[in-house]
């Protein structure tokens, strides 16, 4: 679903974290958000999820103003850097959790969860507890759990930052494929330039509490703040040598 954020502001301890921030994202797009640490990327995701209240402005998902709507009813799933799995449930139960709390019966929710497990290539781990999984496997379960509830919007807060590069690449591909198939609108916060470009169908940079969304890769790379030119220069320096 389309996301429209209009003029939102959040301040904390006297400091303006988001300052009249506005942007729009069309349905099915993935918006990569880059920016320095502490610039408010996480706060932006939390405002859209309904976990932080904006001081003014509005947030609309699928044309519906959700500014005053509680997180449960927004259809926006927020995923953390750490794949938070429920330690008292096994992998299958973790996946089925979202469906069960929506009142779906045990059999049907576990069937759907098992299908998802197969798509995630985790069917062999259905009965394991979260501590028996690797970081990448845990992250896959967290994704699967979020996808199963068919969210209108997915909010991903540096979800791959703790993974090794191989697992990270595999996860990026998996997520792109699944998001594309399901046409899920996604906001993807990352510090990694390459990852931002691979994942995002739209690119943006956050600075001084505002979000600048670029029209294309060219304009993103032309902005010196994004670090793209520095990165290109670095690799080109090897050619010159």
């Amino acid at each position: 679903m389309k996301i429209k954020v209009d003029n939102i502001s959040v301040s904390r301890s006297g400091q303006q974290v988001l300052n009249g921030l506005s942007f729009e994202l069309q349905e099915g797009h993935i918006l990569s958000v880059m920016g320095k640490s502490g610039c408010g990327k996480t706060t932006l995701l939390r405002v859209i999820a309904g976990l932080v209240t904006t001081e003014n402005g509005t947030v609309a998902i699928g044309g519906r103003d959700v500014t005053e709507v509680p997180p449960q009813e927004r259809g926006a799933v927020y995923l953390y850097q750490e794949p938070l799995l429920f330690p008292h449930l096994n992998v299958l139960e973790n996946l089925a959790f979202g469906l069960k709390i929506r009142g779906e019966n045990k059999k049907s929710s576990e069937d759907k969860a098992f299908d998802m497990l197969e798509q995630l290539d985790l069917a062999a781990h259905a009965n394991k507890r979260s501590e028996q999984l690797s970081g990448g496997q845990r992250q896959r379960v967290a994704f699967g759990r979020a996808l199963l509830v068919s969210p209108a919007v997915l909010l991903l807060d540096e979800p791959f930052s703790n993974l090794d590069s191989e697992t990270r690449t595999a996860m990026q591909q998996l997520y792109r494929k699944m998001a594309h198939e399901r046409e899920i609108t996604t906001i993807f916060v990352t510090h990694d330039l390459k990852e931002a470009v691979i994942m995002g169908t739209r690119l943006s940079y956050m600075d001084e509490g505002r979000l600048l969304v670029y029209n294309d890769l060219k304009s993103f790379s032309a902005d010196t703040r994004t670090g793209m030119q520095r990165e290109i220069g670095f690799w080109q320096s090897f050619d010159r040598k």
Binding site: G50, P71, G75, V77, Y78, L84, I101
Partner: peptide, 21 residues
Amino acid sequence: MALEELCFTLGASRRAAWMQA
């Protein structure tokens, strides 16, 4: 706290989040 928020964004009511998670 993050776990509680996760429940909410997954669609759990306050009661469901407490009872089931």
